[in-house]
Write a protein that binds this DNA or RNA. Structure first.
Length: 288
DNA sequence: CTTCAAACCTGTGGGC
DNA sequence: TGCCCACAGGTTTGAA
């Protein structure tokens, strides 16, 4: 669901809404939402109660809140997760899974998730990580907008792969934050087909792809993210406006914004891929 | 080690 | 109205 722009919008909302505040009580409404917290519900609650939230951080699609205990509250929104900062008297959402009440009696932090693919966990922060990065997400690569992102390493890693370019873009170990929407949008901007074998990519093509990804991610972030419905909203419940800027995603049959050819939708990796048949011709050697 | 399909969930919308 | 299928922005798992 949420990709880099949407998750970053949530992070910014958490920075405004919960950083500097101290947790009073925690309620877990669905055990599946904290299944990654292996020690269980009572341990999860005990590690949060009385702790002050020091910051709101993100890597790729992962979020975490460093606590004054040295632990971090880690979150992944999965396909349908939301972290909402709402008044305590607001009625419970249908899929409310976890509720954090604060000592100051102000707005609560609620984890709401229809499908529960995402969830929360309290984990020890990585000692050597510097920024207190959770140990469990060390394998997540920097995102294309991160100063730590290394384009040379990215190109090398791509060339060593034996798969199609879109599959590689969705692999968070290579580059993070990119999901189905922004992979399709980035590939369209670079005029590359999703089934292009990674090992055949030339240097300029990788540079074009990276530039396309960076541009679309930055523009989407400025617009507050992509939101087709009320599932993808900021911590304050606001929908982003980037859906109307999309070039290919969800635009099957509509004219390509570059050449007018109707956008094509295909099933790929158990999901949909959108391409312009003219701007992004299928490579002779296709791989997926 | 890499690659890939299936599984994990709940809900919505379209066709009949 | 109801039923059934396809589909939804992600990650993990296990098999090959």
């Amino acid at each position: 669901m949420p990709e880099l722009p949407e998750v970053e919008v949530v992070r910014q909302g958490l920075e405004r809404g919960v950083v500097g505040r101290t947790v009073a009580t925690v309620t877990v409404g669905h055990p599946r939402a904290i299944r990654r917290h292996l020690a269980g519900e009572s341990d999860f609650i005990a590690l949060l109660a009385g702790r002050r939230i020091e910051a709101a951080r993100r890597r790729g699609k992962y979020l975490w809140l460093p606590l004054d205990s040295g632990d971090v509250l880690q979150a992944h929104l999965g396909m349908s997760g939301q972290l909402l900062v709402v008044p305590p008297d607001k009625p419970a959402e249908t899929h409310l899974r976890v509720r954090l009440v604060f000592l100051d009696g102000g707005h609560e932090l609620r984890y709401v998730d229809q499908r529960t693919f995402g969830g929360l966990a309290v984990v020890a922060s990585e000692v050597t990580g510097g920024a207190g990065q959770p140990a469990g997400i060390r394998h997540i690569a920097p995102d294309p907008l991160d100063p730590a992102f290394d384009p040379v390493a990215f190109r090398g890693a791509l060339r060593r792969r034996r798969t199609g370019i879109k599959r590689a873009l969705l692999d968070q170990k290579l580059v993070s934050g990119v999901g189905n929407i922004y992979a399709d949008e980035g590939l369209w901007r670079a005029s590359l087909h999703y089934a292009r074998p990674t090992e055949t990519l030339r240097g300029p093509e990788v540079a074009r792809l990276l530039a396309g990804l960076r541009a679309v991610l930055a523009e989407a972030l400025t617009a507050g993210g992509t939101s087709f419905d009320a599932t993808y909203v900021s911590a304050e419940g606001v929908s982003g406006l980037f859906a109307r800027e999309l070039a290919v995603y969800g635009r099957a049959g509509q004219p390509c914004r570059r050449c007018g050819t109707p956008i094509r939708r295909e099933k790929f990796m158990n999901r949909s891929s959108y391409t312009c048949p003219r701007c992004q011709p299928r490579p002779r050697r296709a791989r997926w």
